[in-house]
């Protein structure tokens, strides 16, 4: 297995008008790995993901996906390079049915519905299969998160960015989603970058963690070390 990182971020700066939100973020994600991006509210976690997926313009620095520079590509192109982003709240389109949301995810690859990919996703998420013709607005919070992840998987990404999949979900459902991501990594070689408030849960699920503070990488290291390092926990993670 190659040790070349699948996703590398080099010196990323980002401004919202006069305010600098990210300061020289540098990190790399190994292939088929699972990383957590942690930090307090406003630390820049969501901004970082949005910069990676092309929703925000970066001021300077580089994002390399499998060695290819994707920094200046718009979001609708980055998904076609293999980087999918499930935004905070999932971004499920409530006005569309479950099946339409899933079809949408695979549309960039082909205008014909990818029946095989759809069947695979529905097998991963049985509740969605039961409700495939229903409007997405009728789904529960956990089902919406499943649909959001399912839609991203329809694009057959190699890297999946997830912004707070646990938001508003019961701990049991969150655990199911974390387990599922781990299984996916094993079965399809997916690389997952997980942004979480729930630092303990995220570190227990991942191998590597990055802790952001005020738009900078404050600490990074193996997840189990971060979990056992009292100083990091107290200073940044609040437990």
């Amino acid at each position: 297995m190659s040790t070349e990182p699948i996703l590398r971020v080099e010196g990323l700066d980002l401004h919202y008008g006069p305010v600098q939100a990210l300061h020289g973020i540098t990190l790399s994600v190994p292939p088929e790995g699972m990383c957590a991006v942690l930090g307090a509210n406003g630390a820049g976690k969501t901004t970082l993901l949005r910069a990676l997926s092309g929703l925000h313009k970066v001021s300077s620095g580089k994002v390399l996906l499998e060695g290819e520079d994707i920094t200046r590509l718009p979001a609708e192109r980055i998904i076609t390079r293999g980087l999918a982003h499930v935004p905070e709240g999932g971004g499920v389109i409530a006005e569309l049915t479950v099946e339409e949301n899933l079809r949408l995810g695979g549309l960039w690859r082909s205008s014909r519905t990818d029946k095989k990919a759809m069947a695979e996703v529905l097998e991963l998420f049985p509740p969605l299969a039961e409700r495939r013709k229903r409007p997405s607005s009728t789904l529960s919070g956990g089902e919406r998160q499943m649909l959001a992840i399912g839609r991203a998987l329809m694009a057959k990404p190699r890297v999946l960015l997830l912004d707070e999949p646990s938001l508003g979900l019961a701990p049991l459902i969150t655990q199911q989603i974390f387990d599922l991501l781990r299984d996916l990594r094993k079965s399809s070689g997916l690389t997952v970058v997980l942004v979480e408030q729930n630092a303990a849960g995220a570190l227990a699920t991942t191998e590597h963690g990055f802790v952001l503070n005020q738009g900078k990488v404050a600490v990074s290291g193996a997840s189990d070390e971060l979990l056992s390092d009292e100083r990091t926990r107290h200073a940044y993670l609040g437990f």
Partner: peptide, 24 residues
């Protein structure tokens, strides 16, 4: 139609549509 699905997605949730590769 796929075009119609893209158009509806772009109208309802432009950002989610972009993340699915739709040229809004």
């Amino acid at each position: 139609s796929p075009l119609g699905l893209r158009m509806r997605a772009a109208a309802f949730r432009p950002e989610a549509a972009r993340l699915s590769g739709v040229k809004v």
